[in-house]
Write a protein that binds this DNA or RNA. Structure first.
Lengths: 229, 229
DNA sequence: CGCGGCTTTGATGTTCATCAAGTAAAGTGG
DNA sequence: CCACTTTACTTGATGAACATCAAAGCCGCG
């Protein structure tokens, strides 16, 4: 991980994240933030770490995951640029309940949490917009998990292929940022079955795939499996 | 459902929910709220309803659930007095994504959402406390689902028996507010298997149970099953 | 008092995890 | 850069966990 600093007032992301802050607030915030860059695979946050920063992704991709008592890891969310990656815990807990690591080279803006809270207290407009964004994020996670759990394995695989194609890459053809094992951890199944089902989809000409590259061939069928599988 | 009004400034729940509001704010809010009472089984909110109120439970018990495309229902949360039952959607969506119904005779305080947002904007202290409470709630739901899904059926049943004993009734002996079918919908399994496993627990003297009453007999064993089952 | 929904138990079948074993790929140290 | 180790990927065979189906008793309610 490396750190560097930047000018918040001129920051491209200001509009997207802190649009309701005025120049004064932005500048006062500027000294309480750090931009950090991580390499693919780097751990950004470990479960149990003290929470004292509020994170959002500027570039890259990260996974949020939780380790169960027996060592199994469950991936809770994949976050893309502009997402607040801290989940909700930041405002309700003192220690992180989830670990976060980089799936790709990633730049994160880390803002002092105490300072953020100060601004929430003094700027209600900002408080509300934060509440809205964080709510949406948590809601998405809850609903997504609910949907996934209601499906058979084939349906889950179809679901996440569509999710990556639509929500993350906006392309019918992309390179999966996750290993088979990580896909398994994301959608609650075994690595073996992830592989088996991807192979089936290939055989059935629903997708094409070499290693981690995926190309959607039969969109309609994939959607049907995602829904009814 | 019946409605009636009450004096917010003298409300017992004020401290717990709106503690950071001053007399002026409370009184201005008072005209924008309604207390409603529901009978066991009544539907409080239906999926698709427009969101224009913010709810919290004063007395009783409710379930929040989502209906899947094929008609199956998944229970997302059981809310007890003082809980905000609107989940997060209230701040991020215009239409409810979940239905809410009363598991018991229930009194709900419904506050005009527009008014709440106004107060959030003008009172940062309130905004922050709301953010904290809502975050905690969503976090609990996410983590609870994650834990449940990582367990076998016996573990799930043990888990929710403990949950009801500890978090809802604070007693080793209680009457389940849910039917077998609803338990199944809460912890993702079939009604038949809920029944089977409860029967097993009875046979093994881990719990005693007649109809919907449950009494924990072997706490240690139950906890062990909840963890490792 | 009969109908529909909830509960219960048993028998059967399917889905999925586990185990095993082998190949390919990707780090690691000399 | 090559042997070496480790980690990821892949396929098949087996068995366990769980859903589904069927059938019957129970209870509340119009």
């Amino acid at each position: 991980m490396t750190e560097n600093n930047c000018n918040c007032e001129a920051c491209d992301y200001r509009m997207l994240v802190f649009e309701s802050l005025n120049s004064l607030e932005i500048n006062s915030l500027c000294n309480f933030k750090q931009e950090k860059t991580y390499k693919k695979g780097d751990i950004i946050v470990s479960e149990g770490d003290k929470i004292d920063e509020f994170f959002y992704i500027k570039t890259g991709l990260v996974k949020t995951y939780h380790t169960l008592y027996d060592g199994r890891e469950k991936i809770v969310n994949i976050a893309t640029p502009m997402d607040y990656i801290s989940l909700l815990s930041v405002f309700s807990e003192t220690y992180h309940k989830y670990s976060i690591s980089a799936l790709d080279d990633t730049t994160v803006c880390c803002v002092n949490l105490h300072k953020i809270k100060e601004i929430i207290k003094s700027n209600g407009e900002f408080a509300l917009s934060l509440l809205e964004r964080i709510s949406k994020n948590a809601d998405k996670i809850i609903l997504q998990n609910l949907q996934l759990n209601s499906k058979h394995l084939r349906g889950r695989i179809a679901y996440i292929i569509i999710l990556f194609a639509d929500k993350i890459y906006n392309k019918e053809s992309f390179v999966l940022p996750l290993s088979r094992k990580e896909i398994a951890q994301l959608i609650d199944m075994t690595t073996e079955n992830v592989i088996r089902i991807i192979s089936e989809f290939k055989k059935d000409k629903i997708i094409a795939s070499v290693n981690k590259s995926i190309k959607v061939l039969d969109r309609k069928k994939l959607e049907q499996i995602a829904k009814h599988g």
